[in-house]
Design a protein around this nucleic acid. Structure first.
Lengths: 304, 304
DNA sequence: CACGTCCATGTAGTTAGCCTAAACAGTTCG
DNA sequence: CGAACTGTTTAGGCTAACTACATGGACGTG
């Protein structure tokens, strides 16, 4: 019933290997192994079992790891409480984001943060990696999903919605649809598309357009980087689905955005966290700042 | 943010002195003092302050102690969970009761308990001592209160209602009211009463009778022990307010119970626990058994 | 099929942290 | 004023968790 040992079990559940846990907790694998063994003896039933050269949790181990999370949460609440008493939301907070969200939100957030609260940011390509898994490494993970679709439910992570961003159709100036105020799926038949990489969330909306319009879209290129996609659109090589608030920043006036009607076309930007980390005062402060910044961006954009 | 230290702070909040904490946790006062000092240094703000020769918590200390309870609860839940996995509700559970509840419930409970779950019982006089305070010493505290009146709210204790027991008017055989099916407050004017000790919960109902009947009751004796009261009633020295399910056991047929109408005359029997202890599997098992036994008693009595 | 690699886990030695013991200091009361 | 309480300090021992190193399976490869 030792908390440190429970925490180790929890880390094992999250990271999947003794070595990874050891690395993350600044210990030798031997120390981790020993402590887990003690925990197992205390529990009186096997919590782990070998699988190949690795180690996996048993059902009992997983259940215990889950309740270890509750312990970690209440402990984090306690430390947050006394941070509030001293009212200093200080310390370091780490964050990963996908590029567009970082570009849209982070500069504003960092500008308004107290100097003694350092926010360490990094970016990752959302389609290359399992974003929820980053919650083991980073305090805050900015991720996006299509509306309604909660791809990271049930993992026991805390999900804080920050904003919903419409996805518009990006056109080059002079395009036949460029003087419309909005477009429908049926308008888009026959166009050449600059697509996103396979598996990217935008993909679903393109499929929805195909279903609605009753025709397949021709997809000439597939890119992950938004700026690259835009440059292709501007060059007249095709049209693309782009997030409204983060598009056209590089070459203003040369890219035309048209709202898409007849289909729900938006993405949700959320913050993902391990529940215990979400309780930290410094983390909560950053989240609050993110929410403010997000609504500020949304306000200023809809005002246009 | 060490759990053991938080636990110590919590104990200090509950018990009020370093020595008491040391005694309860099988340590020397020195050890407790040192750990509290470390905690205070970690917290960065004073958690305790001297008062006379004793020690009291500051506001911050109390707040931290409260969140320490949450930690203790989640930890207890974790250990309970793994006890469930091994499904052995084993170990020791301690319990205090006031005499009548113990007489009514405990034999039946202990009879149905697994032999490897030892229940250590004790009784205390409810008016002599602060019952909620016993939760520091015992896992389960059986207490009673008048209906509606929750004298132990807000202390952060877990309260589990077990049963409500009517309080009847006890009469000697041959008493003028003995052939009635029930009595009203106005019927009781002019009687001599055998009362309970000052401050006892029954007191409130006697006052309510006085208010309803519009006259003061004459109280000749004041006892705490029920059997003593009954013997006085049987001897014709007065009438008394007695709990229905636990009266007349000693000398059956010589005491007559009459329901009291026109006034709510009942007491609630509840179990009081520290919230963390309430989570222990063994404790939960005992509580469940108490509830079953209570409803069994209530069933068999109302069937008469 | 032997070899290197990658895991997890034993073993021995070191160290850090928590405890006891005993002396000390402030407060209350007879 | 001293006896009997409080809680605190200091010194020192012991437990327990860590590191370093060695061991033993499991996987992939030349």
């Amino acid at each position: 019933m030792d908390v440190q040992r429970l925490e180790l079990l929890r880390e094992l559940a999250d990271r999947g290997s003794v070595t990874a846990v050891a690395l993350a907790t600044h210990r030798t694998p031997s120390a981790v192994s020993q402590q887990l063994k003690v925990l197992e003896r205390e529990a009186g039933l096997p919590l782990t079992q070998r699988q190949g050269r690795g180690l996996v949790l048993t059902d009992a181990g997983r259940a215990l790891a889950r309740s270890a999370t509750d312990v970690a949460v209440s402990l984090a609440k306690a430390t947050a409480l006394w941070d509030e008493f001293r009212n200093l939301a200080t310390g370091e907070v780490s964050l990963v984001t996908f590029p567009t969200a970082g570009q849209m939100l982070l500069p504003g957030v960092i500008k308004h943060l107290r100097p003694d609260l350092v926010l360490n940011c990094a970016d990752e390509d959302p389609e290359l990696s399992d974003f929820p898994a980053f919650t083991a490494e980073y305090d805050i993970v900015l991720a996006h999903s299509m509306s309604g679709q909660l791809s990271w439910a049930g993992r026991g992570l805390k999900v804080v919605p920050l904003m919903t961003e419409p996805l518009d159709v990006g056109l080059p100036v002079g395009h036949p649809l460029a003087d419309r105020t909005w477009v429908r799926p049926s308008d888009l038949i026959g166009e050449t598309w600059i697509g996103v990489t396979e598996g990217y969330p935008f993909e679903r909306i393109l499929h929805a357009i195909e279903q609605e319009a009753g025709a397949r879209l021709s997809m000439s290129q597939r890119f992950a980087d938004l700026a690259l996609i835009e440059s292709f659109v501007i060059a007249g090589l095709g049209i693309a689905l782009v997030p409204r608030y983060t598009s056209g920043g590089g070459q203003p006036g040369r890219l035309v955005l048209k709202p898409l009607r007849g289909i729900e076309s938006e993405r949700q930007i959320v913050a993902l966290m391990r529940p215990d980390r979400a309780e930290r005062l410094a983390v909560r402060t950053v989240i609050e700042s993110l929410r403010r910044e997000a609504s500020r961006v949304q306000q200023s954009q809809t005002a246009k």
